[in-house]
């Protein structure tokens, strides 16, 4: 019998890596051959002894290792969606303020000019809505007269650059009252 051949098969037989037909052949052989059977058992015993985990991991060693593990730093996560929504909302608030309050933003042609002084004149906020639907020509005439006659009380005389400016611009409450009395005197 070719025992050397079968002895060489022992490691793979134990690890289960021997091909099926070789396994059948090997098993048939060891049934007949005592030497090979002893070799198989010895090799199994050596492997089992080697596999035995007889040493304890020193106490506390695992905890020490765990304490040395890299800790995940709290990531500086920017929630872009949240910030984008907040920014959009803020933008809308600001824009709506300017859009619905022509006293702050003056649209002359394609250019927008901000007249911050209007914001500082609360009384003027009253005026634009009041004037909508009025006779603009008359108003222009009136304001021009005021201007020509140096009756204009505002320091910001430079605002009368164009007709649009005049219409869109604001009057103080006193000026409106003056305009009302002018209209009633006609």
């Amino acid at each position: 019998m070719n025992c050397e051949k079968y002895n060489n098969m022992i490691p793979e037989y134990i690890s289960g890596e021997l091909e099926e037909h070789a396994t059948t052949e090997f098993e048939a052989h060891i049934k007949e051959c005592t030497d090979c059977r002893v070799n198989l058992e010895t090799e199994k015993a050596v492997l089992a002894m080697t596999a035995e985990d007889g040493y304890d991991v020193p106490e506390g060693l695992n905890s020490i290792i765990l304490s040395k593990l890299p800790v995940k730093k709290p990531a500086f996560r920017i929630n872009f969606m949240r910030y984008a929504v907040a920014a959009s909302f803020f933008f809308l608030v600001i824009m709506s303020y300017f859009m619905f309050n022509p006293s702050v933003m003056n649209n002359s042609g394609s250019e927008f000019t901000f007249k911050t002084y209007s914001v500082l004149r609360p009384a003027a906020l009253y005026t634009n809505d009041y004037l909508i639907g009025s006779d603009y020509d008359e108003l222009i005439t009136y304001k021009t007269e005021l201007y020509d006659e140096n009756k204009w009380t505002s320091d910001d005389t430079d605002i009368f650059q164009s007709e649009d400016d005049l219409i869109n611009d604001l009057l103080t409450l006193e000026e409106l009252e003056s305009y009302d009395s002018y209209l009633s005197s006609l």
């Binding site: 985990d53 007889g54 040493y55 695992n62």
Partner: peptide
């Protein structure tokens, strides 16, 4: 997650085998 509990579990599964191999 870098949560240590997962690593501790891996260690518990293999610590003895590994230590004995190294010894």
């Amino acid at each position: 997650t870098k949560d240590q509990k997962y690593f501790a579990r891996l260690m518990a599964l293999y610590d003895r085998k590994l230590f004995n191999y190294i010894v």
